[in-house]
């Protein structure tokens, strides 16, 4: 079977879990196998909802030790679950949780791992061929895994979750949970919008903003779009914006549906983190700015003029739709 690890941060189901299950279902269909999902720890959400996304069975290991991530504990439990359920493929999210577990699981299960896959696999002579983006978006790699057990971690926003089925009952899975060595003390959550890696629309601004006090127009645009805000590296480095907003090679890599870049030149290291966005809009007063080469739509103009105008147009559009 295809076993999907459905993450439940704070006991909740988020988009990452729905994406992973939808993906797992498609892999299972390709292999002619059933798809099951597994959740770890106390789950407040109705995990049975994962059935709608294609999980024929949803398992839970309800042990409080699993509420906080300890990669050793989670990998041990997942490896035992995979063995007990005869999983041939394990799917995880390529998230802060998936990155902690996937490699460990691969070693435990003697499995080939490809992390950050962004499209559906193909079956060729019994090997699973999968693709992912490499060289920070500048190339696509195709890998073949032919080990008996295969592990894939799915890039966020790579596929759209599809709810076509019905919810199922959650079954308890009896697996021993070892004692962990990591003690999670606290969680500082960033107030506000959807976290950047999950955001569908991102409004990002750079040094062209001139001063941190000018960010109001960026926030207004983000507000009408229900978007998450991001920034270029020099902006984060000079503390104009919080460092968690820094996207690019040395910040975080994102792939939203829509990326709006305001007063950002489009240096190669910036593009490395955003060029997997589906649609890129660039607003820059310099027609020679390199970002225009990577853009789908461009506006050559003064951002202090253009951005408020764009915000008004979107407001109008939202009001009439």
């Amino acid at each position: 079977m295809v076993l999907v690890y459905a993450e439940t941060p704070n006991g909740q189901l988020k988009k990452a879990a729905f994406e992973a299950v939808s993906y797992g279902k498609k892999v299972a269909a390709l292999l002619g196998q059933p798809c099951a999902a597994i959740t770890l720890g106390t789950v407040a959400a109705k995990a049975g909802e994962l059935g709608k996304y294609g999980a024929e069975k949803v398992y839970n290991i309800a042990n409080e030790q699993l509420n906080h991530l300890d990669s050793q504990v989670a990998a041990t439990v997942m490896a035992n679950a995979a063995a007990q359920l005869n999983a041939t493929v394990v799917v995880l999210s390529h998230s802060s949780t998936g990155k902690a577990i996937a490699g460990r699981l691969a070693v435990r299960l003697n499995a080939g791992l490809v992390s950050g896959v962004n499209s559906l696999p193909e079956l060729q002579n019994g090997a699973l061929h999968v693709k992912k983006s490499v060289f920070s978006g500048k190339a696509i790699a195709e890998y073949a895994i032919s080990t008996p057990v295969k592990i894939l971690s799915l890039m966020g926003n790579a596929i759209r979750p599809e709810a076509t089925g019905a919810a199922v009952d959650v079954e308890a899975l009896n697996i021993e949970v070892p004692t962990g060595r990591i003690n999670v003390k606290s969680l500082k959550t960033i107030e506000g919008r959807v976290p950047l890696p999950e955001a569908e629309i991102v409004v990002s601004a750079g040094r062209g903003m001139k001063d941190p006090s000018n960010w109001g127009i960026v926030e207004d645009l983000a507000e009408v779009l229900d978007a998450t805000t991001a920034c270029s590296r020099p902006v984060a480095d000079s503390d104009w914006r919080p460092h968690h907003e820094h996207v690019g090679q040395t910040g975080i890599a994102i792939r939203p549906n829509l990326y709006i870049a305001i007063g950002i030149s489009g240096a190669i290291q910036h593009l490395a983190g955003v060029n997997n966005s589906k649609v890129i809009v660039v607003i820059n007063k310099d027609p020679e700015a390199p970002f225009f080469k990577a853009a789908d739509y461009g506006v050559v103009g003064d951002l202090f003029d253009v951005v408020p105008r764009l915000t008004e147009s979107i407001k109008k559009f939202k009001a009439s739709n």
Partner: peptide
């Protein structure tokens, strides 16, 4: 255990479509 089969370059963008700054609608 994992074999790199091949590398390709991503499809080139069709090119930027420029919109007049006065025409945000």
């Amino acid at each position: 255990p994992v074999e790199a089969v091949r590398f390709t370059l991503p499809p080139v963008k069709a090119g930027v479509k420029l919109v007049d700054p006065e025409q945000m609608d």
